[in-house]
Design a protein around this nucleic acid. Structure first.
Lengths: 339, 339
DNA sequence: CTGTTAGCGCTTTCAG
DNA sequence: CTGAAAGCGCTAACAG
């Protein structure tokens, strides 16, 4: 069932039918009604590729993320998808699995007009960003969220990573911690570096000396990470707290602590950036910094749509920084307060 | 940059260039090499819509799920996306938010050829399935996973829900539970009903009388669910165990138990279908039935690709049933054993 | 208000 | 082995 057949059924020209369906004001209300009725009756659906081809628009955006099975990213996609769906847009998902090569390959494949815009959160390996510049050069609207490329002039939706890292570290210090280890996911990602900077500055402010050996840069191999964490915890002057840059590293830390029969939070405290509200609920001793993941995804989509609508105009879209929450829990109460 | 310009650069006809790029055997190796080189040099990328239009294929699949920010579904999508990406396919994501109307609307929108195949897990409201039959009628390959429509003749990828429900209930009984409540998500979904059947049969086998008031059908409103659970737990003969059909209901149960100051697992045990391995790790007293979510997604994609490849052939694709794991944890050890 | 027509960029007969 | 040409289904400029 295509326009031609539909037009024949209606004894109208193809273009009139097309216009009627697109609710053009050049068409009389009466014929519009007839056309719409017939279209519904025959269950007509426009071929999206024909119209995409003709209009050079796809009503589709891509979301490129390291991993979908991750509480932060799945919440962010939820926000972005919900927003896009409301706008009548389609959402393509691509996972890089934290591999730069995948990210590059996906970036290349998205340059052919398949999507009208791209939402991206970088892989932890990403240092060079030529593939992202290419996208910008091609004029495809691009918005970063969370794991952003600082050297690229595109909107970035992030949370207050430095401040959160600072406050979280202070929280640990105020609770008596003197030797706080920091687990990073990458020395390339700005979020990781900002969080670490916050940690370092808070330590310095409180006259605490941070030791090199308590500063670990992990990667995506969970076993390797656990090995590094275990090695650190087995030393004689082990840290009295671990501050994990991302949830997954907190989990690895928990596992190692269990293995080593360390009591949490008596022997050692664990603080983490985490969206794992469920786990936090199940284990009230878990204090977390929780990012507004859904809002980040939603906001990123909103900014992307602005960009797509104003494409060509010189308007510079501003960056957006949302606030994380430091959620302090204990067995009896839960005290959320803004960082 | 399109074929026409590329052809001009090469002093070749459009069709020859097209053929060369598609590695047709009608083209001499030498010209192929030249064409490929030039294409790479000029960074040529075929317009996907033009070729989709021409070939009536999109190299795209849709994944329709209730909610992306859900441990089970995000893992399943991971499996499906990874498989599709390896096959060079694109993945569109649609969330129904457990609303039938959304599911219907999405189903309609997917009938226009935008995708070559659909992977779907039903909303908890879905009873009537005309919208899904329509998809089948249109000849679009369709595969169900987890939340399947039993009355539709399409491949279904599920886990052994009845057996898991049975074994899990037996496990509770063997651990001394005598009044086990069951929380369902829907009386429409076959997974929920099968799990409940397993629960009922296990109770019967062990001579345990299941009370109506301990059998709650919840919905998607978390607060309403908590209200129902609280009401049940406040009664004098409260259950000594809760068997939650899905993770989210287990979380709600935990929260209510916390409010009521009930000790888990001494006052009451909680058993749940859950993929929240992290939570389980953090709280070792949590015993779960864990579905192989990644594998389900992957397998669903694999079956869908078979269907798409053999489209038109009469081959009937079989259903696949994977096994869940009953993971019993306590503070010192973790004993996984197959259900 | 409606119809005719020229493509969007690609693939694929059909001719050479 | 290569080229010319038709057309996938739609939209939009142009003509009435």
């Amino acid at each position: 069932m295509n326009l031609k057949e539909l037009a024949k059924e209606l004894n109208l020209s193809i273009s009139s039918v097309s216009r009627a369906l697109r609710d053009s004001k050049e068409i009389s209300p009466s014929t519009k009604k007839i056309v719409l009725a017939k279209a519904k009756e025959l269950n007509y659906q426009a071929n999206p590729f024909a119209s995409n081809l003709r209009k050079q628009k796809s009503k589709t955006i891509a979301v490129v993320i390291p991993e979908i099975a991750n509480n932060f990213f799945s919440l962010a996609i939820n926000g972005a998808e919900s927003y896009a769906q409301k706008k009548g847009y389609h959402v393509l998902i691509y996972q890089t699995h934290d591999e730069l090569q995948q990210e590059i390959s996906i970036s290349k494949h998205l340059q052919n007009g398949r999507v009208d815009g791209i939402l991206i959160s970088l892989s932890s390996q990403t240092a060079a960003t030529d593939h992202l510049k290419e996208i910008k050069t091609k004029g495809i609207p691009l918005v970063f969220f969370d794991r952003v490329a600082e050297n690229i002039n595109a909107p970035k939706i992030t949370t207050n990573d430095y401040e959160s890292g600072f406050k979280a570290t202070e929280h640990l210090i105020e609770n008596g911690c003197k030797k706080i280890a920091f687990l990073s996911i990458s020395n390339k990602l700005s979020i990781a570096n900002k969080r670490m900077k916050g940690y370092l500055d808070a330590a310095k402010k409180h006259g605490i000396v941070t030791q090199k050996k308590h500063l670990i840069t992990c990667d995506t191999d969970k076993e390797a990470n656990k090995f590094l964490i275990r090695k650190m915890l087995e030393q004689t002057d082990r840290p009295d707290a671990i501050f994990a840059c991302v949830e997954e590293l907190a989990v690895s830390s928990y596992l190692v602590c269990q293995e080593l029969q360390l009591n949490i939070p008596n022997d050692i405290k664990i603080m983490s950036f985490s969206n794992l509200q469920t786990a936090a609920i199940l284990n009230p001793s878990l204090t977390t910094i929780t990012q507004p993941a859904y809002d980040i995804g939603r906001e990123a989509a909103a900014v992307l749509f602005q960009l797509m609508e104003h494409k060509g105009s010189a308007t510079h879209m501003g960056d957006v920084v949302l606030n994380s929450e430091l959620i302090v829990r204990n067995s009896t109460r839960m005290v959320p307060h803004l960082v």
